[in-house]
Amino acid sequence: MKRETQNILLILLGGALVKIAVNGDYLRYVKPAQQPWIITGGAVMVLLGAVAIVRDVLAARTKVAADPGPDAPDHAHEDGHAHSARPAWLLLVPVLAVFLVAPPALGADSVIRTEARVPASAAAANAAAFPPLPAGDVVPLPVNEFVSRAGWDKAGTLDGRTVSLTGFVVHTDGGTLLARLVISCCAADAFPVTVRLRGGEADHLASDAWIRITGQVVPGTATRANSYTPDFTPASLTTVPAPKDPYEY
């Protein structure tokens, strides 16, 4: 592969990184804290490619002006690398994936593929980690925290309280679930937290439809045997647009 092509690829790839970091699509792939890293990394990539192009063009000009190349040792070094650059074509794959395919956030398919787990923090926590829920008729909770409390909170802070959860619909053999994926770094390490819905309305929605439900937990239903999936009695259900930030952390 020629130097020009390598530089173009670097600029394309760096540009792809900057683009998704700026327009917010990066939230489908990594956690929000990565944003400055992605922008910096992408910008450096673009810069390295652009500097090389500018220098090559300038070097070509001076070469036309005075033919013996003054910077011969530098280029000898580059030539040595030229033969090994074939894998560099692979840099095109993420460029095409980002610009043309633009894969969506993980959804129902990975919930079915992965066994539901309980968030790490909950497993080690004791009762002190679960303070009473704030006052109010309906308490909005992350699904993550709801599942943790349902499975591990011995004091029963959820019992008898109405909460509201936001997540997407997943249809499995065992019934209809409301699910949310939790990531700690990027989508490769995502694992689902799930709530089993008792009651019909969500059964008619397609998988991956985003909903907000209010209702109450059925106490004692989140056990190790069912991967800590509590049962939930929904009182109301509304469909909502998919959030920009689809994961919990």
Binding site: L17, I20, P103, L106, S110
Partner: peptide, 20 residues
């Protein structure tokens, strides 16, 4: 779809570190 999302995620996550 799941595979391509994970692929882009690994790239987006790892490339800044490679740049470093």
């Amino acid at each position: 779809r799941t595979g391509s999302t994970v692929f882009v995620a690994v790239c987006v996550q790892a490339l800044p570190f490679l740049v470093l």
